[in-house]
Every structure is written in structure tokens, then in C-alpha cells.
Design a protein around this nucleic acid. Sequence first.
RNA 1: AGGACUAUAGCUCAGUUGGUUAGAGCGCUACCUUGACAUGGUAGAGGUCCCCAGUUCGAAUCUGGGUAGUCCUACCA
Length: 753
Amino acid sequence: MLGDTCVAVNPEDSRYKHLVGKDVMLPLVGRRIPIIADEYADMEKGTGCVKITPAHDFNDYEVGKRNELPMINVLTFNADIREEGQTFNFDGTLNEEMSGFIPEKYRGMERFAARKEIVADFDAAGLLVEIVENDMVIPYGDRGGVVIEPMLTDQWYVDAKTMAKPAISAVENGDIEFVPKSYENMYFSWMNNIQDWCISRQLWWGHRIPAWYDDQGKVYVAQNEAAVREKYKLDASVNLSQDNDVLDTWFSSALWTFATQGWPNLDDPEVAKRLADFHPSDVLVTGFDIIFFWVARMIMMTMHFCKDGNGKPQVPFKTVYVTGLIRDETGAKMSKSKGNVLDPIDMIDGIDIDGLLEKRTGSMMQPKDAEKISKRTKKEFPEGISAHGTDALRFTLAALASTGRDISWDMKRLEGYRNFCNKIWNASRYVMLSVAGDDVVEAAAENGTKIVITDAMKAACGAGGEEAVLSLADRWIISRLQFVEAEVTRHFDNYRFDLAAQALYEFIWNEYCGWYLELSKPVLWDENSSVEAKRGTLGTLVRVLEATMRLAHPIMPFITEEIWQQVKVLAGKDGETIMLAPYPEAQDAFRDADAEADIKWLQDVITAVRNIRGEKNIPPSKPLDLLFKNGGDDDFRRAEENQTFLKKLAQLDNLTWMNEGDEEPMSVTQLVGDMEVLIPMAGFIDKDKEVERLIKSVEKLDKEIERVNNKLGNPGFTDKAPPAVIDKEKEKAAGFARDITKLKDQIEKIKAL
RNA sequence: AGGACUAUAGCUCAGUUGGUUAGAGCGCUACCUUGACAUGGUAGAGGUCCCCAGUUCGAAUCUGGGUAGUCCUACCA
């Protein structure tokens, strides 16, 4: 009421049209104020008339500016009523005409008391018609918890619209790229609607505003006081005092890429060189929630202050990699007051439940919150958090970092990747056991020392280039290593840390540990293997492990360094640390499509046998006989060449190739390509169950073949689809048909037995 | 209110420009103390790709509408 400078009605409001342009007398203060028409007044609300207080309300401020109304500041910095209102024109200059008079009884009064008093005085004067409940959202201060009152103050502003223009085009023309790209929309929508930026803050911590005032309040701006005196030719007789305000933290932060290199001391040759070398920088990694606050401001400020040799504005960085936020297991944002914050250190080192409770509730201001949080914490982590290690945490973050989405933290994933670290460690243990022998490895483990690498060990691995023969498995894993190297590199290049992590996981666990280590055993444990063959396998074990450690190092720095230090010499490498070792690069010369195809066949046969064991509940310890049937030349060759591998990994006694017309014993069958794998099971087989199992497979294939045939029978498909797609479908159909024929044969045979 | 994003297995998530029998890890089931590892091994079950319509020979994928959720911005005399 004390600061009102007009009454607004809606221009469409027929009730009040005739009053627009007239004045009313503001009660209590006796101020004469105009009635104006402004669409801000809502005809539906209340009387449809609303009083306007431009100095103490955001909306009213806008109305005031639109209608060029004066503004009257009636509050002190304590939010008490002033002795007299300060009256300004809409452009901020002092207003001499409108009175800022405040009745004596309100002067110096606390704001809420004054409000009550004014309502009471309205009532007493017979001016109060009714009091209506009105729900509204009022902003409260974070720190003090009191209602925030907008008011007029002097502040420093940056003309953001002007600065935004080059910053927008830098992203439009690709000088700066967001990853993922979709965040560019967010950036544009912010930059295109940018408001002038208030950069002054009333805090004690920060860069002080470089503005000085003389005793008359006249303002001078320059880099420092001496510069001010020189620039404005002020001698020592003029008293100068610097503005007490400091710069917005984002203003200071926006200087980061160049200020850290020594800007603005460009005359210093070292600073100039640093800027030339390191500016613009490459990649900024940040959360999407500060694209507005920081990223946009950095781009604007840098392009304003930094120019290249031709005067073209420099960007601060070329790529902005935007991460998601880590949320808790229920998807809620982590916050202290909710008590759902997980400290990375606790996941690395572990913490007991008491320590965790103390951490989460120790500094709570509200005791009732503390109780809730401690209950929740006890339920979620009854035993506290166990130690998982740095590498596991880092790997988990990489694996979960798919682009453009938040991460709901999953402790189970962390456990899985801790197990992965353990797996790697044990694989390296197997390699060292194979190279150095049990006694040496165990002695070293007991003493906590490294295994001393002898010349004999090096020679056993072929580290000096001694003659070696590679097994099929050796050639296969070397070929697969090329593949994973290329994959991981590609994913890193695309900022797909999740896919890089997945490729590493898949290769190390399934291919290297799951298959290759097992395939190395028949060679290493066979007394009849030649020295060269053993050297080939040992050398491959060691070299692939060494390269894999370098490949995984960015995501698991510690365990890879530890293992690398042990195996580097065996792999013929040297160097102080894995950190300085070159990153692996795939080499086409080491790719071996034949070896990959052969091993694929081997895996399929072994899996087929294991499948039969699983289905029929035959323990792995019981050796079986295996019959091959209907294979081609490749099948025959592969079976011949890989007898040792097959016997060891599938636990087989005899391998027999069936010829046309041979009597077929009662067997369980699996298909491997065109070939059939048979396990004779006279006496153990349940005829009905086996038939049932086979019928189920046939039914599944029938469905597939029906689908494919429908497709192929559709002229729309055969006319319009690309030939490659059609061929693929035809091939599929033929394959299904072959399989069905074989399975049906098998069903007949079993039924006939 | 305006804008953006998300929806795929019980859970956490992949699925590149439309053509896969829709994948991974965890969890689940059965079996296994085989000389790296039970923080392990082998095999397996589990999906109306939120709903509706459209485009197309063909849609988890593209378009429109709807539902649910998350976030940002603004405002509510």
C-alpha cells in the first residue's frame, strides 16, 4: 500500500473503461495515483482492479516499466518501513514529483507488523470490504528461512543479448559441439531468450567489482585504482572507494579456460605461449544442470575476451560432454536433507553402519529428519557398505554412463564390477602360475613381493623372439584382441564409455578368461606338447594380457598398472609405468578369419555337448562318447584338428565320425550348422521326454519359418526390399527347413527304437 | 502455463542410418569342491519393446495423438 503508484484495470473491462486516465487517492498516505489499463489485470479475479507496487513485486515492476510509472522503495535492508519512500522514475532516475511520504506511525516499523496495522487502519476508516483467503507461493530464503521481499537496489549488469550472438553461432556452425547433440536445443532455447545478466553479489567472497566512487558518488571503472586515476586524471586529492560488491561466481568461473593460463597478463611471453598452446581447450565434461550457469557463460565471456591472430573470437573448448546426474536407487536426486547421499570414498573403502549413520545424520539441523534418515539407512545398508575398490567404482561409472540420461545408482552393478576386477586378478594369477610355477607365485604372494622374472621365464614366453608355434586358440585370441582394440577405441572416440566398458568386459571375461584360458590348458598341461607349442601359448597368454591391461587402463587404472608391472617384461615390453605406455592399436595383420571360424565351430560343438549334459543332468565329471554325422569337409577337418581341445573342454572319451549307413545307437542330438552331434545314451534316455524336447524345438522353428515364408511370399517385400535383405531371408528359410528335417528324422528314429 | 527428456526382462540399462530368432549385468531355477577364480563354472527360464492410430513391403526404431514419470523456466493480486 505504501509503495503503490497506480491501479490497473484490464483494457477490455467494460466496467472500468471510463475510469482509465483518471486518478484515485491512495488512502492512508494521501497519494494521488493514476488508473491505467494493462492486460496484467485479470477481470476474473476479485474486483478486476489491482494496485501496482513496482518497487516490491516482479510483476508490478513489469507493469510499471510498460506504463512508465514511478517506483517507490518503502523498505530498508532489514525489510522495515523507511522514514520516507525513495521515489524513482521507471528508468531508474530520481523522481522529483511523486511524493514518497510515509505516515509517521508506520515509520521504522517491522514489515509484518506494519501490514497488520495498515489492515486495521483500513478497517477503522471503513475502507475494508472483506478479507478473502488466497493460496499463493511465496519465496523463502534458503539460509534464513524468511520471506523474500523484492526491492530496488543498484546492481551491475552485463548486456547478455549482445554477447549471446557470437556464442549462438559458435554452436550453430559446429565450432563447439555438444555430446549428446540434443543438449544443443537446451543451449539455444536459453541463449535465444537470454536476459540481462546481473553480475553483482552482496557477499564477502569473490572478485571485487572493479568500480570506484568519489565522494560525490560518481563512478569510475578500470582494472585497479591506479588505472582509474590515470584514466580519469584524478589526483590524490580525490577520495576513491571501491564498490563493496563482488562478481557473481559464474562470472568469475566463466573466465576459467583463459584465466588459468595467466590472462590478462598478455605481455608476459610465458602467458602468451601458454594461451597459444592450450587455448582453446578440447573437452569440457559437465552435468546438464549447469549448461546455463557455466557453459553458456564460458562461451560468451571467452569469445568476448579471447581473439586469435585474425581477431576472430576464440571458443573456450570444442566439445561439451554432458553427463547425467547420479540418482539414488529409487531415482531420487541425492541430497543431504534426504539423507540418500552416497560418498564415493565409502564405496571404495567401505564403511560400517555406525560410521555411515554418523556421516548422514551427524550434521542434521532437524532431529526428526535424522531419525527418518537413520531408519532408512539401516534398512538399506544393514551391514554398512563393503569395500569395492577404486577401479570397480570407476568402471561402474563408465559402464553406466550412457549418453543423455541420468543414472539410477545400482549397488549391484558395483558389486558385479568388483567381481570383474577379481576375475582379472585371478586370470593374471593363472598366467603367472603358468609362467613361473606354483612355488614361486605362492612364495611371492606370501611375502607380498613381486615375482622376480628370470631369463628362463622370459625364454619360456618367447620374450626374446625365440621360436614358437601358435595354436589355433592362440591365433584366435590374438585376432579377437584386434577386434576389441578397435571397438574400445571407436567407443572412446564417440564418448561412449558405457560401450567401451562393455566391450572390455565381454572380451576379458568371456573370451580371454572363459574360453582362451581353458583352451591354453590342453597345450600347457600336455607332456607331449613341444617346447615351441608351449612357448606359443605362454607367449600369447602374456602378450594378450599385457595389451589388455593397457586397453583397460583408462577405466581401471590401479589393477592394470599392478598386473602390467608384473607381465611387461614377459611380453617383451619395458617402461616405467603403464600410464606412459602407448595405447594399443588394432593391426589387421593379426586378424585371422579362419581361426575365428574354426573356434566358433569348436565353441558350438562344446556348447552342444554341455547343453546335452544340462538337459539330461549328466554331471561334468562323467566322460562321454561323441558321434559326428552329416558334416562337410570343414567339419571333418575341424574335428580332426581339435580333438585335444574337444576332449578336454567337453570331457569326452571317444570321437567317432559316422559314415553313410552306419548303425546309429540311441542318442541325444544337437545341431551344429549342417552337422549333427550325437551323444549315445543307451539305457539312460527317456524316449518320451526326448521326443517331447525335439518336438518343442521343431515347433519353435516352425513359427520362425512361417514368419519368414510369409515375408517371402509377399510380393510387396520381394519387389521393394533390397536384394541383400531378400537373400538373407531366403537363407534363413533354407536353414530352418534343414534343421527341421533333421530334427524330424531324429524324432522318427527315437520313436522307432 | 511453456519447454525438454524418458518409457525395452523382476531390477539397472544397451539396441548406431527402419530388415536381429530383441541383447548385457544383476536377480531367479537346476547341476558342479575339474590343479586362476564359489567375488567361481555349466546349462536354463524370463519380454504385448507404455497405449492407440498412421507412414512403409517391413516399425522397439519414423510421424501424430494419448497415458505415466523426471527435469528446466516462468508465474499464481
